[in-house]
Amino acid sequence: MPLWKLKREVRRVALQVSQVQWLVYGPALRRIHDFRKARRIRLHHGAHALSGDVAVVLIYQPQGLSGSLFHTLRHLTGKGFAPLVVSNAPLSAEDVARLKPHCAAIMERPNYGYDFGGYRDGILHLLDHGTEIGRVLVMNDSIWFPLYPDCDLIDRMRRADDDLYGYVMNARVNRHRSHLQSYFFAFGKRLVATSDFRNYWAGLFVTSNKNLVIRRCEIPMTEHFRARGYSIGYRYLISDPMIALRSLTPDELMQVVRYQMRVDTSNAATLAPYAAGDPADPAWRTRVMALAGDLKMGKYLLIAHPLLMLGKLRGQILKKDRQPMYRLQRAELLAGGFAEGMAPAVLEEVMTCDGVAHRLPRPLEADPGRYLRPSVLPVHRTADREVEVA
């Protein structure tokens, strides 16, 4: 057996072993947690009423609250949502005081169950103590949101009026594995009012094993509600960057090829000949587009080139992840001028989070209007939906 296969199998077995204790003891640990919640969870009342449309905002900021969190909370309240902030880390008295004007309630809890454990405690508290609850938006602080002041994501969500709506749908051949990504999703009023909604969260498999959180919480949630007849909506499919590729100029397509070589190092050698090619050659474009489908360039929307994710698809969410691919994306974002018009609280953190002294370019001097975000986008039609591409 090749060494790389042996290492892969060892990692797989180690991962499975790490999950055994949670599969065996997880339900009992959840019951113990529920029994102890009154002693282990601290609650603080905020300035807003816990009623109407509510946003459960999960945070983990043990070093102090970020400026972008308050930017997010202001956006949510401006859109008519009462935030319930759930912190998986203790908060200082000063931070609690800073949060209260922006929230309906603040919950401090142990970091049990990671994001879905916090989502669960927040939603069950909302169902038990809220009044006349409408939509329930659920998000966490692994993202910057919104990036730009023209964000219409919540407006789109309301117009769609689906029972469960998410930012990105991971569409799979196997429908049971197709799921909404779990950093931003919302439940409609019809679903929130049902016993199905309460029963799902009360009986959720809670675990502090990250792989099991994905397998037992994030992935099954969408199908759980779809199988019961509830409607599912989303802003983007993971395939949308591939559609946006078609609208690129030759030079822009070359930018994406060179970026892809850095974020997808396993395919760098395959892309290298194209990075040295002539983008003005129509045959070059044809070959690159064919290769893009095979390599699934831009498959994962949140690590796509900023030109695709922000410029063409007008995305409003950026991951805070420190992995190299996201660091490269942030550097490309700043170098390419996509910080133009970005919310100041977000921009400051984007510029400093990687420990690199970034300097903003002046794109308007070189190419006036190139990076401005158009208010009306052309529509590209696919087999089953319309995709707006700048």
Rank of each mutant, 00 (worst) to 15 (best):
L248Q: 04
L248M: 11
P250M: 06
D251L: 07
D251T: 10
E252M: 01
E252H: 02
E252T: 02
L253D: 02
L253E: 04
M254R: 03
Q255Y: 05
Q255N: 13
Q255D: 15
V256T: 00
V257Q: 03
V257W: 02
V257H: 03
V257M: 03
R258Q: 12
Y259A: 02
Y259L: 03
Q260D: 10
Q260A: 12
R262M: 13
R262F: 08
S266E: 13
S266F: 06
N267Q: 14
A268K: 14
A268M: 12
A268C: 11
A269L: 11
A269I: 11
A269V: 13
T270F: 08
T270V: 15
L271N: 12
P273H: 15
Y274Q: 09
Y274M: 10
A275Q: 08
A275P: 12
A275K: 04
A276I: 08
G277I: 05
D278E: 10
A280T: 14
D281G: 09
P282M: 07
A283H: 12
A283L: 09
W284I: 11
R285G: 07
T286L: 08
T286C: 10
R287N: 13
L291Y: 14
L291N: 11
L291W: 10
A292F: 02
A292C: 09
G293P: 06
G293H: 14
D294A: 12
D294C: 05
L295P: 07
L295Y: 06
L295E: 06
L295I: 08
M297W: 01
M297C: 03
M297N: 02
M297H: 01
M297T: 03
G298S: 01
G298K: 01
G298T: 00
G298E: 01
K299A: 12
K299L: 10
Y300G: 01
Y300C: 02
L301S: 00
L301H: 02
L301D: 01
L302M: 14
L302G: 00
I303L: 09
I303G: 00
I303C: 08
A304E: 02
H305R: 01
H305G: 00
P306A: 01
P306W: 00
P306D: 02
P306V: 01
P306T: 02
L307G: 04
L307Q: 06
L308M: 03
L308K: 00
L308I: 03
M309D: 01
M309P: 00
L310F: 13
G311A: 08
G311I: 00
G311P: 07
K312P: 04
K312D: 09
L313C: 10
R314P: 04
R314C: 12
G315A: 06
G315K: 00
G315E: 03
Q316L: 08
Q316G: 08
L318C: 13
L318V: 07
L318K: 05
L318I: 06
L318H: 13
K319P: 06
K319T: 09
K320M: 12
K320S: 15
D321K: 12
D321L: 05
R322D: 15
R322I: 10
R322F: 13
Q323Y: 08
Q323L: 13
P324W: 05
P324Y: 07
P324F: 08
P324T: 08
M325R: 15
R327A: 15
R327M: 14
R327C: 11
L328N: 10
L328K: 07
L328G: 06
L328I: 09
Q329T: 02
Q329S: 04
R330Y: 12
R330S: 11
R330H: 08
A331R: 15
L333H: 05
L333W: 04
L333M: 15
L334M: 15
